[in-house]
């Protein structure tokens, strides 16, 4: 390997990492946070068996999980302007990623809620707690404990999926990589660099997942 290439690789590592920190991570964090909030609500609609809302939730999950993420991105960014709804690239990406992720997280949360034994709720009623109190203090904490590993997996998958946002002109890591390649023609090395950065991000998240799981399991619930 010659010196020029080595210099290019280290330079581009930082050049690609910067949009990683300013675009990929914010896009992931904002979208995932929004997704989680809506997911809990959507899951609760189903868990509480509120007719009407439950059907809406099922329909929403059916549509979102049944269509490709890329199609959803194109639809919002390139399609909606046809009817006068125009988003900037970043907000468009946030909307699509949060709505998309939400459908998956809602399913995870629903399963986790259903895994809480009914006896936990009955015990709460018997000590005089209201439905809301039981949900907030007993059922949701236990459901989060169950849902934590699959939700972490979704989050890690999502970091990688944000590379799709380059298709709607969000200058995240992949877009930046392509720009550098178009200047330097070092295709293989540069795709390797961006791959390594994604791997770094995933590794950090996987480590965080471990730490989180350890802390949660020290609260004992559902172990053994």
């Amino acid at each position: 390997m010659n010196e020029r290439l080595w210099e290019l690789l280290t330079d581009s590592f930082w050049q690609i990492l910067i949009p990683g920190l300013t675009m990929t991570i914010p896009l992931t964090v904002i979208s995932f946070a929004l997704a989680m909030v809506i997911a809990v609500v959507v899951a609760l609609f189903q868990f509480a068996n509120i007719q009407g809302l439950k059907q809406v939730a099922r329909f929403y999950i059916w549509v979102i999980r049944g269509t490709p993420l890329l199609v959803q991105l194109f639809l919002v960014f390139y399609g909606l302007p046809d009817i006068g709804i125009v988003f900037d690239p970043f907000p468009a990406a946030v909307i699509v990623f949060s709505i998309n992720e939400d459908a998956y997280c809602a399913e995870t949360m629903r399963a986790a809620l259903e895994a809480v034994p009914v006896g936990q709720i009955e015990a709460g009623r018997c000590v005089g707690m209201s439905c809301l109190q039981i949900m907030r203090r007993i059922v949701l904490p236990q459901a989060f404990r169950t849902a934590f590993p699959p939700l972490s997996n979704s989050l890690i998958a999502m970091v990688k999926d944000t590379s799709l946002a380059s298709n709607i002109t969000v200058t995240e890591m992949l877009m930046t990589t392509r720009q550098i390649i178009s200047r330097t023609y070092e295709t293989l090395p540069l795709y390797c660099v961006v791959g390594v950065i994604y791997l770094l991000f995933s590794t950090v998240l996987t480590k965080l997942q471990r730490v989180g799981e350890k802390r949660l399991s020290s609260y004992g619930a559902q172990k053994e």
């Binding site: 034994p117 006896g119 936990q120 009955e122 015990a123 709460g124 009623r125 018997c126 000590v127 005089g128 209201s130 007993i138 904490p141 236990q142 404990r145 609260y219 004992g220 619930a221 559902q222």
Partner: peptide, 20 residues
């Protein structure tokens, strides 16, 4: 709610809150 405040229930399967 009022009656439940004056009663208590012990279950066959304990049903202790697992996160507490």
């Amino acid at each position: 709610a009022r009656i439940r405040r004056k009663t208590a229930f012990v279950f066959q399967s304990y049903n202790l809150f697992r996160n507490k």
